[in-house]
Design a protein around this nucleic acid. Structure first.
Lengths: 110, 110
DNA sequence: GTGATACTGAAGCCATAACTTCAGTATGGA
DNA sequence: TCCATACTGAAGTTATGGCTTCAGTATCAC
């Protein structure tokens, strides 16, 4: 089990929550404050902050406080972790599925 | 919000659970039965079956019962869904982060 | 048929995750 | 200085997810 595996759990878990995915998608259109993130989500600032802690924990988002406002922006590291996992899996899957296809000589999908 | 978004939630959620990721990784080394999947996981067959339902639901795994044994294998569709999501996000992130970099003229990481 | 194997379904337990409220702190502007 | 804004932390509620047990059903080998 590679060192990155533990991290991948965190990132997948983070992106598994629809609210956090909404936050990530909102931030992909540019940085934002906590309040602005909360508006379309219809949850409290506290809840948003809790989601941000999770996203910061797996390096999908970074934040900085200037004055009384906290600005949130995306970070690449977290995404890279799952990209790597998916790449690794895909190559194993492809060979596993190829072997299987030959073995079963049947094509369940077009 | 594209039609694929709902599905991506499911797939991320599925892969966010460490046990399900272990199942997927085990299946990436070749197809298996429910019992064989359960062995290294140290959980009941019932629990494994429940995880398999989730993985089947988001097209990461397909299963077929022959006689009294159910054989499980990987399916590509689920993985493709999150590959697409990540690709879409990455291009938006890259441009968002580029803009931001120019704006802030600071490099927080090496 | 008998017994072992392989799985399934319903029901319930329990830890955790997502959310809230509320009572703060710190900053910005008049 | 005074008030509004922007956020934070602790504590509590509630729903859900992952797991179990147990009582099945179906298949295989003898």
């Amino acid at each position: 089990m590679p060192a990155s595996t533990l991290k991948a759990d965190q990132v997948f878990n983070a992106l598994g929550d629809p609210t956090r995915r909404a936050i990530v998608e909102q931030l992909s259109r540019g940085p934002s404050t906590v309040s602005r993130l909360a508006e379309p989500l219809d949850i409290t600032l506290t809840a948003v902050r809790q989601h941000l802690h999770v996203l910061e924990g797996c390096k999908l988002v970074s934040t900085r406080k200037v004055g009384r406002t906290r600005t949130c922006q995306l970070e690449k590291k977290g995404l890279a972790v799952i990209e790597d996992w998916i790449h690794a899996q895909r190559s194993m899957w492809d060979s596993a599925l190829d072997n299987l296809g030959a073995l079963l000589e049947e094509d369940g999908e077009p």
